[in-house]
Amino acid sequence: MAKQRLDKLLSHEGFGSRKDIKKLLRNSKVTVNGTRISDPSFGIDFENDSIAIDDKEISIHKHIYLMMNKIMHTVSTNKDGEHQTVFDLLADDMRTPYLEDKLHLVGRLDMDTEGLLIFTTDGELTHRLISPKSHIGKTYFCVLEHKETDERKKEIEKLFAEGIEVGPDDNEAGFKCEPADVKWATKSQIKEYTENSSIQEIYNKLESKSFNKDDYTAALLTIHEGKYHQVKRMFAAAGNKVVFLKRISIGKLELDKALKPGEYVFLDDESLEKLNWFILSL
């Protein structure tokens, strides 16, 4: 494995710009395998070298993986002249010059959609996860404007299982969806998926309508593609409207239920295994 420059690695880990790292090497005790290093170009072996700053060992990440609970009204992009972006929600140590070039999103969510969003520097993982060949299921919690009867629920299940035809949206043509699975959320699931969310904003908007915030229909929809506004278009084609949308899982990886809207965590090894399971199985 090729070695990486010490200054590049420390910048990657959130210790500042290359200029900042030079100051760090001058003013602090930076050691590699116990030997003090002052040369910013010193080569580091990810697999075997140990780095410490003032005798405190630091973790070395070959790549960074973050899970965010995206909040409504944020844009899934790095820069936007009008709206707050999901990158604006990251702490300063996640917005270094190195990470600004490398950290990216695995897929996107619409501006008014909440839920599971993955950031990473691992381009190979991203390519495999978003490839149409991967056929990874993505599950969404959907609050519907109109309450559905048991008979209508069965009709919708059948339509989605067969692959529903959706109409055009903005400049996007209509298309026939791949078969999708819909289940109807229980009271306990509704409580679970709305606990750390912005659902109250939706309740306030719909207050003057017939929508009952204490008794409505919500669905758990799993799709294997990601066309423009697909979930909303599917329910619209089935005769209803999605008023709140939250992605709750990608494959086997579920959104951390403790994350409040806008919060994020580093993915642990167990979570990464759930993502990498797809790479190994393709």
Rank of each mutant, 00 (worst) to 15 (best):
T222Y: 00
E47P: 10
E114K: 07
V243N: 01
L103N: 10
F46T: 03
V86M: 08
I44C: 09
V243D: 02
K183R: 15
E157S: 06
F15Q: 03
L259C: 08
L90Y: 13
S28F: 09
K147E: 11
N240T: 09
L159G: 06
A52W: 07
K274R: 14
K176L: 12
V32S: 07
D256H: 02
S210Y: 14
I58G: 07
R18F: 13
A180C: 15
V143Q: 00
A173S: 13
H127C: 05
F244W: 01
I51A: 08
L267M: 10
M1W: 10
F15V: 00
S28K: 15
K79I: 11
W277Y: 15
E162M: 10
S38C: 10
F42K: 13
D80G: 12
R18H: 11
D256F: 04
A237M: 06
F160A: 00
Q189S: 13
V143H: 02
A180R: 02
T35P: 00
T194P: 06
L245A: 04
G123C: 10
V30I: 10
P168L: 03
G163Y: 00
T186G: 15
P168I: 05
L109I: 06
K138E: 04
L272N: 01
K62M: 09
I51V: 15
I136H: 01
K257L: 13
F211S: 02
H73A: 15
E172P: 06
I202C: 05
V75D: 06
A52T: 13
D269K: 15
L280C: 14
I199Q: 03
W277R: 11
K227S: 06
A258T: 15
S281L: 12
E13R: 05
D110S: 09
I250Q: 06
T217Q: 03
E207V: 02
E225Y: 04
E192W: 03
A185Q: 11
